Amino acid sequence: MKKIKPMTNQEEITVSTETFCQPDIDLSVWQALTQNQYSHNSLLSFQNDWRTFVNHCIANRLCPLPADVTTVRDFAELTAKERKVSSVRRYTVTISLVHRCHSYKDPARHREVKFLMNRLLQEKSDQAGQATPFHLGHLEALTEKLEKSDRLKDIRDLLIWTLSFEGMLKRSELAALPFDAISTSTVPYLLNVGETPIELSNHASLMIDRWFEISGITDGPLLRRINKHQQLGEKPMDHSSIYRVFRRAADELGMGQQLTFSGQSPRVGASQDLAEAGMSIKEIQHQGRWKSPAMPAQYVGNTQARDEAMAKYKRKLEKE
């Protein structure tokens, strides 16, 4: 946790605890809790992660704050059945942050939770298979097919595939992009992911102009749901919507029976394309904003580098 001074006033703690026992908490409250130490996208992640945890607690009649060790351990184990270990890890980081800001004992730092995370990490690393790569060739074929379409959904989906590939975006990063994540003060445009600016191609910049023109949006979420009547909604896309967009990509390529793309596919495909172009694992790690070289190493088939990075990460978990 960054240098955030925990609450000490008992009345303040009590009032804030009541607020954080609810699933829907305004971003301004998160900003105040974290004392302006985190970016807008980080606050969105905290908000979403905490909502998931609180909803789990409400459904099972458990207390989210302060939560006991068993609650956090069981939540992490249950979540791991459907989410990647990196997502589970992020949930525990958010739980830890909220407890420590309220001066409560941190259940996520208990050895039972640490041992579970260690086991999940090992199990996940032993599982064969990864997301189907989405390569530049796939993107170029989709662009050729759909770039002249006037349908709102075609323009949005093509923009999603392009930004995901060029920015090597995680699904959560893609879903959280606000309108002002695009900086149009330079050409080509910049895509700001958290505090990281990513230079886009001229083609991507033109697609963004077209999306702004046809959607008419001037604020709020950059990428939004579209109903069956081709009407643009106000809410951002969720993970299920993004999954359907990538499932559509395989269908549009006439490969729906052979390929199953997911929100992770562009990161895998871009990593492999960059490695093929001669970029090192470290350079790919930096490009994709990974904290460890383990995942890009796995994506490009460098299992030795992956195993070394995994071992380093596990040692870090044990020390925390």
Score class of each variant (00 low, 15 high):
G216S: 08
L200Y: 01
H229S: 06
M168R: 12
Q10K: 14
G256S: 12
K170V: 00
T17Y: 02
A76D: 01
H286L: 14
T260V: 07
Q264E: 14
P107D: 04
G278C: 13
C101K: 03
P64W: 03
R289Y: 02
H286K: 10
L232T: 02
T260R: 13
Q122F: 03
P266R: 04
K170Q: 13
S149P: 14
G129Q: 05
T218Q: 13
E213F: 14
E112D: 14
V268E: 08
S86E: 12
E82G: 01
L62K: 13
I25C: 03
W290G: 07
E234P: 00
Q122N: 09
S42V: 07
L146A: 01
G256T: 03
E318M: 07
Q304C: 00
L163P: 03
K312Q: 05
D273S: 05
E123M: 13
F46V: 06
I208R: 04
W211G: 04
M207R: 14
G137R: 07
D106Y: 00
R315P: 00
V85R: 11
V113L: 05
R289I: 09
E213A: 15
F53P: 04
A275W: 04
G233W: 00
F179Y: 15
W211R: 10
A249I: 05
S164F: 00
L206A: 12
S292Y: 01
V85H: 06
P66W: 01
R51G: 05
D157P: 12
Q287P: 00
D307Q: 14
R267V: 06
V113M: 03
Q47L: 06
M1H: 10
T132I: 07
A309E: 00
L62E: 10
S205D: 01
T260G: 07
T79W: 01
S215H: 12
F212G: 08
L158Q: 10
K314W: 01
S103K: 15
D251H: 13
Y313L: 13
L232Q: 05
V93R: 02
N227G: 08
E140N: 13
P293K: 01
M237W: 02
L177F: 08
S262C: 04
